[in-house]
Amino acid sequence: MTSTTIEYQNPTAHTSAGGVAVGCRGVTKTYGSGDAEVTALRGIDLDVRAGELMMLVGPSGCGKTTLISVIAGILDRDAGECAVFGRDFSRMSQREKTRYRGETIGFVFQAFNLLPTLTAAENVAIPLLINGAARGGAVGKARDMLARVGLGDRAHSLPSQLSGGQQQRVAIARALVHDPRLIVCDEPTSALDHETGHKVMEMLKSVALKHDRALIIVTHDARIFEFADRIARMDDGRVLSVSDDHRATPAASTDESETKS
């Protein structure tokens, strides 16, 4: 891997190595109005290639969470364009948007968001059920996916019976079970200790990354930067730089004491 840091100006220059999974151009997003108006995104240009793991880093309030929400189609942008595998959420009806999101995107949340009353297998089966799979087949496939993340023997466990690391592995299995083309992870290691976080990232990268799938991870955790193929550094609603060298990312921009953007 080359160790270069570039100022981020022309996103199309980075798309030659693989197909573009996510392409954002001039994306803006403002919350509130009048005196309470807050601009979260100020013309974001960003490409994420298929087959790569990109991390979005930056201080709290810099717009990372807003950006992945826009990319994942769960938040409408104000202006600009943003396509996921060539399809723009803003040009879809609500029903199409929901369906496309369900089929194309997998989510890993900071707080895992596992349903506490469902077993690990049932939790993992949820995306398949949402996409209309029969329950029996969905749970069977979920068990297979749990085996792939090393939890084959915990399929019947409730989330409360699992450690934090195990819960996050269940969440990762849930994000992957329906074979989505884009995985969006929000602070996947912030609730885990260093060793567990490291193991989860190793597992995530080995199981999730494929040549036709992209991973976007929002994180403050500098200890996992080494897993990124590229790191987009954000501040004040802008992408400042995109680097393929995690060591070149300024520590000041990723205050580990901060928890959310």
Binding site: I74, R101, G102, F109, N113, P127
Partner: peptide, 16 residues
């Protein structure tokens, strides 16, 4: 609500 939000994010429509 948070779980409903997660289901919604994962592609569950309002009808579901």
């Amino acid at each position: 609500l948070r779980h409903f939000g997660a289901l919604k994010a994962m592609g569950a429509g309002n009808g579901t």
